[in-house]
Each structure stands twice: as C-alpha cells, then as structure tokens.
Amino acid sequence: MNVLLDNFALFRKGFVGTLELTLASSAIALGIGVLMAGCRVSPVRPLRILGGVWVTVLRNTPLTLLFFAVVLGLPRFGVVLPFFTLAVLALGCYTSAFICEAVRSGINTVPVGQGEAARSLGMNFGRTLSLIVLPQALRAVIPPVGSTLIALAKNTAIAGSFSVVELLGTYRTLNELGYDIVVTFLWIAVGYLIITLSISALFRFLEKRLEVAR
C-alpha cells in the first residue's frame, strides 16, 4: 500500500494547516517585529524600554513554554479563542522578537548620512524612518528575515501537539492505521522541505530583485 497516495487527503490537510499557520504567524511576526524595531530606535524612552523588554523576554522563552502558556493557560484566564488563533499568536509573538532584531540591525546598516540628510530636509522621526531609512534597510534585512521565517515554518511543528491540525500531526492517524511509520515520516519530511525551500527561494528572488549596483 502506498502511504502517500492512500492518504493524500490527510497529508494535504496537514500540509495546508502548516502552510496556514506559517502564513498567518509570518504576517503577525512581521507586523509586530517592524513596529517593535521602530519602538526600539524611537526618541521616546518608554517605547524603547517596551521594545527592549519585548525582545529580551520573548527571545529567551522556550517556544514550547510559550505555547503552554498561551494555548493552555490563556483559556483558564478567560481568553477563549480557537486553538489555531492561539497557536498563531504564540508563534507570531515569538518570531516577532527575532524579526525585530533583524530589522534593527538592518536599520543600523543604513549610512548615517541618509538619516542626517532626511533630518536636514525637515523630516521628523516617523518620516525619516518610514520614508528614508526602512526602505533602504529592507535590502539588508531580507536574508535574516528569510531565515527567521524558515525557522518559523519549522517551529509550526510544535503546534501539532497543541490540538492544531498540521503536517507532523498526521503521523498519529497513520500510525494508528498501521502504515509504515518510517515512510510516513519520510513524506512529512518532504512536506517540510517543500515549504522551507519555497521560502528560501522566495527570499532569494526578493534579494535579487532588490539588488542594486553600488
């Protein structure tokens, strides 16, 4: 019996689940990450502190613990949401800390003269950052953000153990049905490779597109 073809629907469901988790969490991670990076370089002290604490705490929290706290803890706390949403929140917030650091070091690669020129034209902090510095930082930020999102895609595997449908979780059903477990894992591995390789191809493409001759 062919493990993949017999259970294609099951694999597809898991694959789509992983894909959805990855996409939704990436959106959250990128949004919060860029926002927090903005906070960390802002002239307002409490915002800087907020960004710093956010990054330090989340970067040093094991993701499994975060899942435990968010998926199992929050409902006891009165915040009842679907497991998928909670998992996306946990993954998104966790990854946002790494995105923030990537963006911040990207901001540091932009030559000081750019910010100075923007200021001398009378731009304030928000405009300097969003119109001048961040667009130029984008180029330096693409590779580290790419590897962060690949790590995110791999981390979605944890969600399977917290009642979310995703690729790794498919082994349970197939194991019960008595399929060859090694082959099952082989196809699961292929599924993850497809996703991670696509992300890295996408980001290599972006890098090429944004490349400029210096």
Partner: peptide
C-alpha cells in the same frame, strides 16, 4: 533543514 521536533518524533516513535 528538518524541524528539530520531526527529528525527535522520528527517533522516539519510528
């Protein structure tokens, strides 16, 4: 390239 959890599960279950 493999998620570390897939490796752990593979070693543990398979």
């Amino acid at each position: 390239a493999m998620p570390v959890l897939v490796l752990i599960f593979f070693i543990f279950i398979a």
